[in-house]
């Protein structure tokens, strides 16, 4: 994508794209995999994810969003049921 010129961007330095267009998931080495059987649906992984990369409706088994997950491993560490494994 060629970069826009001065007449094609908003004035005042207002950003024109949402960060969701930027996929930080590329950063990760390990990714979290949730064991649906072990998951107790406590929401810890959702609550403590710095990157809003755990999708959860408050009821079912949460789902990592690998587009944004940076692989920090907090979710696995904070899972009381040890239901999350970090895999390469």
């Amino acid at each position: 994508m060629s970069k826009r010129g001065w007449q094609e961007i908003p004035i005042a330095g207002i950003p024109f794209l949402e960060s969701t267009e930027y996929h930080t998931g590329d950063w990760k080495v390990f990714r979290p995999v949730i064991d649906e059987q072990k998951c107790v649906k406590c929401g810890n992984c959702w609550m403590f994810c710095p990157d809003s990369a755990i999708e959860w409706d408050g009821e079912s088994v949460p789902k990592p969003n690998y587009k944004y997950c940076k692989g920090c491993g907090i979710c696995a560490e904070e899972c009381p049921a040890k239901a999350i494994e970090m895999v390469r």
Partner: peptide, 15 residues
């Protein structure tokens, strides 16, 4: 709207 972002060599000049 977001005012005052980090604006590096790729767009600062256009602003």
């Amino acid at each position: 709207l977001t005012f005052g972002p980090l604006d590096l060599f790729d767009y600062y000049f256009e602003h």
